[in-house]
Amino acid sequence: MQPAFRYTHLNTPIHCLHPLVKLAYLLLTLVLVMYPIRLTDMPILLIWLGFSALLWALARIEPRRFATLFKILLGTFVFLILIQGFTYRGGQTPLIVLGHLKLWEADLGVITREGVWFGLVLSVRILAATSALPLFVMTTPTSAIMSAMGKLRVPPTATFMFVSALSFTTLLFEMWSSIVDAQKLRAFDIDAMNPIRRAFRAYIPIITPLILLLFRKANDFQIALETKGFGAPVRPTEIEVLTTRPADYFWLALIVGVFGLCTVLKFA
């Protein structure tokens, strides 16, 4: 089992883009979704999401990856839409009436159109935010991420921790999958359990061996690192040399331009 959002080596315009430009896209995405939210934000979020979809398409990332992301978030979306539908303070137009239970300004027995819409806006906001990171990780080799972080004067140890965490994710997925299989062989099938039973009982036989194995692997990992001079009191040599091309400036301008448009629309 591989993580769904692992780096894939392709030669697309997005893969060739300078990692700092992609980092800029990531940061601007975060800024955009952090703006105070309103009911009328949907077009702005859709513009940014559409722009992200264009980048995903240019990076030739298979649609099933986006479907995976959507599946992971689906539960959250349903929860947000329902909770906002019932509790949104500005909700005036009833969609479904189950009864009446007034709590401050909200009627908890009624799902309102405005509440559902606000839940949708929140969901799209989350989708816009979360779709940026996989795009970055799937199109940027870790060595380039390290060099880019070096350019941003991030300490090498912090950079290495980030990169090795990405690398450990693969190992974690593989171990998780092997443990689930191992327990199935003793008739313990986590995949077949209902969510409530799973939440209360099922994870102990999976998580306990996972933690014990991780401790063991972490020891070996430490040996491998330290016997290769990691932590030596010298400045590490930079191996990856990042170069900037005209296309990088074009893409940076485009990203900033779309962000500017969204900001203007937001506050106009």
Partner: peptide
């Protein structure tokens, strides 16, 4: 598996 942690062989 635990001795390889970089993204490329060169790195």
């Amino acid at each position: 598996e635990v001795q390889l942690f970089m993204p490329t062989l060169k790195a």
